[in-house]
Design a protein around this nucleic acid. Structure first.
Lengths: 165, 165
DNA sequence: TATTGTTATACTCTATAACTATA
DNA sequence: TATAGTTATAGAGTATAACAATA
């Protein structure tokens, strides 16, 4: 629990951090926009998974994830196979071409940050990563029909959406 | 200059922080989406200014800023007056109604963060703010046709956009 | 009846380009 | 010729709702 001015400043910082995200997006290959890159990166990190799990990790709606997955699959970077345990589900898995794309993405990202963050130490970048991860965690997903009709109503809602496991 | 894995992790964190931004956007009044809120907030913080300066502070294109400004002006939250020093420019200024909206935004934001970040200390929120500001600063704007063909070209650009006071 | 995934539709934010009016 | 601002157009990302197939 911090002071109001700190919260308002945080809101400003988050709003402005979009410029950094756009800078990062600008170095991506035209065929592989941000949503596609996010899908590939998560599959590399966590291995094959169902699309619904991908949606949880991306923290976006399943419908959005389905579109990203379709885009990536059309380019041969992933495979979708039936889930033997549940015929409604499909398992998504990286292909060698997808791995190549990920390697390319890693090179681009690293080059960008190596230049822009050249005066940051490992420890400082690590701290930022840690705090961003904690922010996401604290924020949970906070989705669902909250809509803040009267701000006080915010106290109750959907913390349940954050217990996936 | 940090390790590659830290940079890739940072890219992931930035990608995922979108969920937090969307959570924040979800509590805004329907008439006042994120772009409008950003305009109002900057005018409160830095006072009246030209639209081009607003664009620098928002770190988006002037055309985008023009649209946000038009949206906000239509609702009576700001006034646009001619700049006596340069007839091409227009000076943008908050109205009392705009100030009221800002107060409402501040309440919503604070209530949201007070709930989601209730286990963060003032110092921790402050540290996150500081690091985000530094990240933006290090990143500069990195817009324009750089495309990082040779990173050294990046050294020159607009750090002047960040000397508001 | 609930869940997985797909698709259609709509909205926000953004950039580029073309245009005007000044400088 | 260059800059400030506007507008039109296009693209990426997202959410909601309706739907099909399966649980």
């Amino acid at each position: 629990m911090a002071a109001q001015s700190l919260y308002e400043e945080l809101a400003r910082q988050l709003s402005a951090i979009g410029a950094v995200k756009r800078g990062l997006a600008r170095i991506l290959p035209p065929e592989c926009p941000g949503g596609s890159a996010a899908v590939l990166t998560l599959l590399e990190r966590y291995g094959e998974m169902r699309i619904s799990r991908l949606a949880e990790l991306l923290a976006v709606d399943l419908s959005v994830t389905s579109r990203h997955v379709a885009h990536v699959a059309e380019r041969g970077w992933i495979e979708r196979s039936a889930d033997p345990a549940d015929k409604r589900s499909r398992i998504v898995r990286l292909t060698p071409a997808g791995q190549s794309m990920i390697d390319d993405l890693g090179l681009r990202t690293t080059e960008m940050f190596a230049y822009t963050l050249k005066d940051w130490s490992d420890d400082e970048v690590g701290q930022l990563n840690t705090m961003l991860a904690r922010l996401r965690d604290s924020f949970g997903d906070c989705r669902g029909p909250v809509r803040t009709p009267e701000p006080r109503a915010l106290r109750t809602p959907a913390a349940e959406a954050r217990t996936p496991a």
